[in-house]
Simulated scan of single mutants.
Amino acid sequence: MDFDPWSPAFVADPYPAYAELRARGRVHWFEPTRQYLVPRHADVSALLRDRRLGRTYRHRFTDEDFGRTPPPAAHEPFHTLNDHGMLDLEPPDHTRIRRLVSKAFTPRTVERLRPYVHRLADELVGSLVAEGGGDLLTAVAEPLPVAVIAEMLGIPEADRAPLRPWSADICGMYELNPDEETAARAVRASVEFSAYLRELIAERRARPGEDLISALIAAHDEGDRLTGQELVSTCVLLLNAGHEATVNSTVGAWWTLFRHPEQLAALRADPGLVPTAVEELLRYDTPLQLFERWVLDDIEIGGTTVPRGSEIALLFGSANRDADAFDRPDTLDLARVDNPHISFSAGIHYCVGAPLARMELAASMTALLERAPELRPVREPERRPGLVIRGLDGLLVEV
Rank of each mutant, 00 (worst) to 15 (best):
M1I: 13
W6G: 12
P8L: 03
F10D: 04
F10G: 01
V11S: 02
V11L: 11
P16F: 01
A19L: 10
V27R: 00
W29T: 09
P32A: 08
R34G: 13
V38W: 05
P39D: 05
P39W: 02
R40M: 01
V44F: 01
A46F: 06
L47Y: 01
D50S: 07
R52S: 03
R52C: 01
H59Y: 13
D63M: 10
P70T: 08
P72M: 03
H75T: 13
E76R: 14
P77R: 12
T80P: 06
H84E: 08
G85C: 02
G85N: 05
P91G: 06
P91Q: 11
P92N: 12
H94P: 04
T95G: 12
T95A: 10
R96V: 11
I97S: 07
R98G: 12
K103S: 14
R108G: 12
R108T: 13
L113A: 07
R114W: 10
G126Q: 02
L128P: 01
A130N: 07
A141R: 09
E142F: 15
P145I: 07
R160Q: 05
P162M: 02
R164K: 08
P165N: 05
W166N: 02
L176S: 10
L176D: 11
N177W: 12
E180P: 06
A184V: 08
A189K: 04
E192G: 08
S194Y: 07
L197W: 00
A202D: 09
E203D: 14
R205H: 04
A206H: 08
R207E: 14
P208D: 15
L212Q: 00
L212N: 00
L212I: 01
D221P: 10
D221I: 07
E222N: 12
T227F: 12
T227D: 09
T227S: 15
G228N: 14
S233H: 06
L237W: 03
L237N: 09
T246M: 05
T246F: 02
T246L: 04
V247C: 11
S249M: 10
W255A: 06
L257E: 05
Q263H: 08
Q263E: 14
L264S: 14
A265N: 07
A265G: 14
D270W: 10
G272F: 06
T276M: 03
A277I: 10
A277S: 09
A277H: 07
R283F: 04
Q289S: 04
T304P: 00
T304I: 03
P307L: 07
G309N: 02
I312R: 05
D322S: 04
R328C: 13
T331G: 15
D338E: 13
F344M: 10
F344W: 00
I348Y: 15
I348L: 13
H349V: 12
P355K: 01
P355L: 01
A357H: 00
A362C: 13
M365L: 14
L368C: 11
L368Y: 07
L368N: 08
L369S: 10
R376D: 15
R384G: 00
P385F: 07
G391I: 07
L395R: 07
L396G: 08
V397N: 05
